[in-house]
Simulated scan of single mutants.
Amino acid sequence: MIPFNLQLILIISNILLLIFLLNNIRKYKLELKYTLLWLGLILITFILSIFPSVLNFISSNIYIETPVNALFLIAFAVVFTILYRFTVIISNLTNQTKKLTQELGLLRNELNASLLKKGSKD
């Protein structure tokens, strides 16, 4: 069983995190597609903190001694998933930036070459 103090801390922190995320979405500081994973994490931990019997079931089925450890394992797995997803997004953005930089260099080269041709005709 999860101690009531921890249960209360989880519920309050989930509510505060939800308010923080929604506020950042409202102010256009975060895109909705990137916050969906965080909203999923909030939902999972909120459900697990309200219904600790689910944690008892999970911890007994995967042979974890205390439900609190199962909660930390689940949180770690979800945060790891979020971290991996953002790593993939950053890698894609890095590749796009490199491609755009190369295209910009080629366009500048073509522009300089056309300006030199035009300058030599005059």
Rank of each mutant, 00 (worst) to 15 (best):
G105L: 14
K33F: 12
Y34S: 09
L6T: 08
P52N: 04
L93V: 05
I90E: 09
I19G: 01
L55Y: 02
I50H: 07
K29G: 00
N14R: 05
N112C: 05
L73A: 13
E65L: 14
M1S: 15
N95E: 12
L71F: 11
E110I: 08
F57N: 08
A113M: 08
K98S: 11
L83V: 05
K27Q: 13
K98E: 13
F46A: 04
L48N: 00
I90K: 11
S60F: 07
T97Q: 07
A70S: 06
I50Q: 03
L18D: 02
L100W: 04
G105R: 13
N92K: 15
E31W: 06
P3Y: 10
T97L: 15
V68Y: 03
L37Q: 04
A75S: 11
Y63P: 09
L93R: 14
N109Y: 15
N23T: 15
A77N: 00
F72R: 06
T97M: 13
I62K: 02
G119H: 12
T45E: 09
R85M: 09
V54Q: 06
F76Y: 12
T35Q: 14
I42T: 03
I9K: 00
I15D: 04
T94F: 14
E31T: 03
N61W: 10
T101W: 06
F20A: 08
R26I: 05
I42W: 01
I12L: 07
E110V: 10
L6I: 14
A77T: 11
R108Y: 10
L73W: 10
L30S: 03
L21Y: 01
S59I: 02
F20C: 00
K98M: 09
F46C: 07
F86A: 10
T94L: 14
Y84R: 01
I58G: 00
Q96E: 15
I15L: 11
G40V: 02
S120R: 13
I19Q: 04
G105C: 05
L36C: 07
I47S: 06
I89R: 08
N56Y: 04
Y63R: 09
R108S: 10
Q7K: 03
L93Y: 11
I12R: 07
K99A: 12
Y84W: 10
V88T: 08
L39F: 14
N56R: 06
L16S: 08
T87M: 12
L10N: 06
K117Y: 09
I82T: 03
E31R: 11
L30N: 02
N112R: 12
T35C: 13
F72P: 04
I15C: 05
L37A: 13
V68H: 04
L83G: 08
L10G: 10
N5C: 07
I9S: 06
K118C: 05
I42R: 09
V88K: 10
L116Y: 13
L6K: 04
G105W: 02
L18P: 04
G119P: 01
N5Q: 12
R108Q: 15
N92H: 13
G105K: 15
T97P: 01
N5M: 12
P3R: 02
L32M: 08
L21T: 02
N109R: 15
F80G: 03
S114P: 09
I11W: 02
S49P: 02
